[in-house]
């Protein structure tokens, strides 16, 4: 019985701790996503502006490779955000046509594997004719992730331990209460009110029906043997 109770309490403590760990991890992931989306949204605005210009030119019949003024626009936009490493305009096959970084001209932007943010450039047929690609310093994401991770660790560990310990303490407390209830239940005098009322009713009916007039509250039947007699004494001592 004691082993069972302890086992149960341990299982519950583990569940509580696991849930807290879960919560901390999900919070971390959510914050991480929020962090990234904020940063990417910022770079996305710049990419969007370039894409708009390219689309308007395309609609006037200036083919993408001919939009040479885009280089200066890319340069300007890339300079506004120091974290932007390069900003390219690639054709629909991903070949960089213009870039704020001259070294990237002519390469296939998808091949450099760098973390890139893209916005499509579409013509009036709604066909994608190219992409604006922003590459930014991955360090700012990593730094944010590290800071968030540290902050949450400081919070999550005490919470996790606290939840586990609190569960164990309450579990032991409940187990003690249960034990006490069991001991009290051995003595009808210490039974819960509903049981005492039922007992009293039973005795009243029994006494009346049996036509006998036994006195007092002696335990019913012919078994007021040792244990039940000791019950009340025990409970009184404890009370």
């Amino acid at each position: 019985m004691a082993r069972t109770t302890l086992g149960l309490i341990a299982v519950f403590a583990l569940i509580a701790a696991a849930c807290v760990a879960f919560g901390a991890y999900f919070s971390y992931v959510t914050l991480l996503n929020a962090h990234r989306s904020v940063i990417e949204a910022r770079f996305g605005i710049a990419a969007e502006r370039v894409a708009d210009v390219a689309e308007q030119a395309a609609s006037l019949g200036i083919a993408l490779p001919a939009q040479s003024t885009l280089t200066s626009l890319l340069d300007r936009e890339a300079r506004v955000e120091p974290a932007i490493r390069s900003m390219d305009l690639a054709d629909e096959r991903g070949i960089v046509l213009f870039s704020s970084d001259p070294a990237r001209l002519g390469i296939a932007e998808a091949q450099d594997g760098g973390r890139g943010l893209t916005r499509p450039v579409r013509n009036d047929l709604n066909e994608v004719v190219g992409h604006v690609v922003v590459r930014y310093d991955p360090q700012i994401l990593a730094a944010g992730a590290a800071a968030l991770g540290n902050d949450l660790k400081v919070i999550a560990l005490p919470a996790l331990i606290g939840a586990g310990v609190a569960t164990i303490v309450i579990g032991l407390l409940l187990a003690a209460l249960l034990r006490r209830a069991v001991r009290r239940a051995a003595d009808p005098g210490a039974w819960p009110p509903a049981a005492r009322a039922a007992l009293a009713a039973a005795e009243r009916v029994h006494n009346e029906v049996a036509g006998k007039s036994r006195s007092g509250k002696s335990p019913p039947g012919k078994s007021p043997s040792g244990k039940s007699a000791r019950g009340p004494a025990e409970s009184r001592r404890r009370a």
């Binding site: 629909e92 047929l125 066909e127």
Partner: peptide, 9 residues
């Protein structure tokens, strides 16, 4: 649907 072919190259 129209845009798809060009988009996928």
């Amino acid at each position: 649907a129209h845009g798809q072919p060009a988009a996928s190259g």
